[in-house]
Design a binder for these strands. Structure first.
Length: 716
DNA sequence: GTTTTTGCACTTTTT
DNA sequence: GTGCAAAAAC
């Protein structure tokens, strides 16, 4: 019917969303309803109709999503000049383009959460708040919300602890010519709101704006959208209120709920056919999410049939849970799924450890999304700090990080002298290094050390800013960084050395891809990126990530772990109904990532902090909210929430331990004789094993009751 | 003064 | 098991 490749394979609603023109458009897109497809096709459609690619702006939630969309748009349109970025990257780009108008240094450094914490720790100490009860992260959170409310720091000391820390923090950022994540948005918005000409120059660059994951935008982002769009009102937002999982970060679902009111004349298109999951998975997820009271009722449906039942696995400990999951992974592989088609989700980053261990024990390849990402590793940060220092001479934190790595005899005292001299003279810290003789209060040894460091800097600064790789290589060579890592008594040495190589490779790739690049631009583009895809080998890997990181992705086989009260829902989210509903959405997001096979698991006791903290867990209330008809394995009792005596949750040992067999094992049964295990299915008390017996043929047995013993003799 | 070692407190989720 | 801060060793 439709020969048009842009509309090919789209349903009616999707086609509507792709082709609508003339008024604001809101696409309410349920999980798996082909939202990304709609956005990319819409961009293609509009460009074919005459819209200029470089006057098109698409905003995504993560850099990863931006990258993926860039590829898809490029292959669809054959043009990669569409502006595709996150809100933060867009802010950073605007700020650098018009640094003067915004009143920022064009070479500003971006401080990540770690940098922020380091800085705040120092400030807290200065203000006499060094005790452990004052946690840098708490202040960071408080400052973040002040910034997002548009509150500027006070001019004078106020006596209010929080405000004074905020004030000192801002001054320190300014001193280092640094901005934090919130600044990227707040300063952009403040600048655009205050200066109409500036607003015309920047917002006026775009004829159309698309925003993905609109349910997770916060108030500042909303204001930025208004600024970008009010000139033409050619705006398209997509999102799903049921997948709003960033309320804790200031995301405001009202943005999407109020879209029609904010943009009168909005056309709303709802995408409700799910192309991703089996109906079983979808129904279970729908039943779960229906427990949320603050919700517009909506039903997703799929043509894919009920599929396999959802499996629920009970384990006795965290390690046991991990082993069961890995067993499920192996079973999936035996059933023909590739490792890259399998994902394991967990609530907190710390939970990855047990799964990793279990995967390593079975020699299965995996990759972790999130956790300590590439650009957050110590060795990578060290080297990048050297590079950043070459670009931004005022970055105190970078100098501090680098000045004594490797140890060259410039400790805290020497650095303090250097720093106060810089402050006293108003000169950039980096420049003061060259004036070792003029710094008061240095001992001869320290002075000599600083002179040596100055020589190093001089040598590095003499290099051209492009290509980039030789600069890094010179840094590594001059400071003897590889030797330094090798000599350290650190179990991670090999990994760190690999990361150093990987960083060199990244710079090399940048040089190849960007002939007109420079160190400044490389750092600017890298600042907001956390991960680096290790493209060294393309071995398919099992993916591990937090539930938050899973949004927008899909996998044929999905494991969601740690469904326990206190973890999912998290204990810090249990005091309000709103927070519980957000946790429920989080599980909903996790479940709806699964295309064909979904498994949920929990452990009856979980040790925190390396096993020291023992406690019995109660299975998550969310498990009891699932429809029993779609489940294989036993749902924890419906009375679970009223059970006070935790010991009620201890079950017979037999079934929670990892089944002792794998497909292929030879076994002996008292009645049926010798046989070979064909497959294992299910978890917990209903786990079944199919055995091909020599004499009686295939039998399906319940693992717990089948008196099976492993036979000697191995595989045929 | 600087470097290394030990002891302590802590883990939600991310741009 | 980790990361940070105070204590001990260089």
């Amino acid at each position: 019917m439709h020969d048009d490749p842009i509309l090919d394979g789209l349903n009616e609603a999707q086609r509507d969303a792709v082709t609508h023109e003339g008024s604001p458009l809101l696409v309410v897109a349920g999980a798996g309803s082909g939202k990304t497809r709609v956005i990319t096709r819409r961009i293609a459609w509009r460009i074919r109709a005459g819209l200029l690619p470089w006057r098109t702006l698409a905003i995504t939630f993560t850099n990863k999503a931006a990258g993926e969309m860039r590829e898809r748009v490029a292959s669809l349109v054959g043009d990669s000049r569409v502006w595709l970025s996150t809100f933060h990257a867009l802010g950073a780009r605007f700020l650098r383009m018009e640094a003067d108008a915004f009143g920022v240094d064009p070479n500003f450094t971006i401080f990540d959460a770690q940098d922020q914490a380091t800085l705040l720790r120092e400030i807290l100490k200065q203000q006499g708040l060094g005790g452990r009860e004052h946690r840098p992260r708490d202040y960071a959170a408080a400052i973040s919300s002040l910034k997002n409310l548009g509150e500027l720091p006070p001019e004078e000391e106020t006596g209010d602890r929080e405000l004074d820390v905020y004030r000192a923090y801002e001054r320190a950022l300014e001193e280092s010519r640094a901005l934090d994540f919130d600044d990227l948005l707040c300063r952009t918005v403040r600048g655009l709101e205050a200066d109409d000409a500036l607003r015309d120059r920047l917002a006026g660059r775009f004829d159309t704006v698309l925003i993905d994951e609109y349910q997770d935008t916060n108030r500042i982002q909303y204001r930025l959208v208004r600024l970008l769009v009010d000139g033409h009102r050619d705006v398209c937002a997509t999102g799903d209120p049921d997948q709003s999982i960033y309320r804790w970060r200031g995301a405001d679902v009202r943005n999407i709920l109020d879209f029609e009111r904010d943009f009168p004349g909005t056309r709303v298109v709802k995408l409700e056919e799910n192309y991703r999951s089996t109906n079983g998975i979808l129904k279970a997820a729908s039943v779960l999410i229906a427990h949320n009271t603050q919700r517009v009722e909506r039903e997703l449906w799929s043509r894919l049939g009920d599929g396999e039942p959802i499996r629920i696995a009970a384990a006795s400990t965290e390690g046991d849970e991990a082993r069961q999951v890995v067993q499920g992974v192996e079973r999936a592989i035996a059933d023909g799924y590739g490792p890259h088609e399998i994902a394991v989700f967990y609530r907190t980053n710390a939970s990855s450890r047990a799964i990793e261990q279990a995967l390593r024990d079975r020699n299965l390849p995996y990759v972790i999304v999130g956790a300590v990402e590439f650009y957050e590793r110590r060795e990578v940060k060290d080297l990048l700090a050297y590079l950043r220092l070459l670009v931004n001479p005022r970055d105190v934190l970078d100098l501090q990080r680098v000045v004594n790595v490797p140890s060259r005899g410039i400790g805290t005292k020497s650095f303090a002298a250097l720093r106060s001299h810089a402050e006293a003279t108003g000169r950039p810290v980096r420049e003061v290094v060259f004036d070792a003789d003029a710094i008061p209060g240095l001992r001869p040894a320290g002075r000599r050390a600083i002179r040596g460091f100055a020589e190093l800097l001089e040598d590095l600064l003499a290099m051209p800013t492009s290509p980039v790789r030789p600069i890094l290589e010179r840094v590594i060579e001059r400071i003897g960084y590889r030797r330094y890592l090798q000599d350290a008594d650190d179990p991670l040495t090999d990994e760190r050395l690999e990361n150093v190589d990987e960083l060199v490779r990244a710079l090399h790739e940048y040089d190849l891809a960007t002939p007109d690049g420079s160190l400044e631009r490389f750092l600017a583009e890298t600042a907001l990126v956390r991960s680096r895809e290790a493209d060294a080998d393309d071995e398919p890997r099992i993916t591990l990530m937090t539930l938050h990181a899973a949004k927008g992705l899909e996998y044929p086989v999905v494991f969601v772990t740690s469904l326990e009260e206190g973890i999912l829902p998290h204990s810090r989210s249990m005091d309000s109904d709103d927070a519980i509903e957000e946790e429920r959405r989080l599980l909903y997001v996790g479940m709806t990532r699964a295309q064909r096979r979904l498994s949920l698991s929990y452990a009856r006791s979980r040790g925190g902090y390396g096993g020291s903290f023992g406690g019995v867990s109660i299975p998550s209330r969310f498990l009891t909210e699932l429809p029993e008809a779609l489940i294989e394995g036993r749902l924890p009792g419906r009375r679970s929430l009223e059970v006070v005596d935790d010991s009620a949750w201890f079950e017979p040992e037999a079934y929670d331990d990892a089944p002792p067999f794998e497909p292929g094992d030879r076994v002996i049964h008292d009645r049926f004789g010798v046989g070979r295990v064909v497959r294992l299915s299910g978890f917990g008390p209903t786990a079944k094993v199919t055995v091909d017996f020599l004499e009686v043929g295939q039998k399906k047995l319940i693992l717990e009751y089948a008196a099976l013993r492993k036979a000697l003799g191995g595989v045929e």
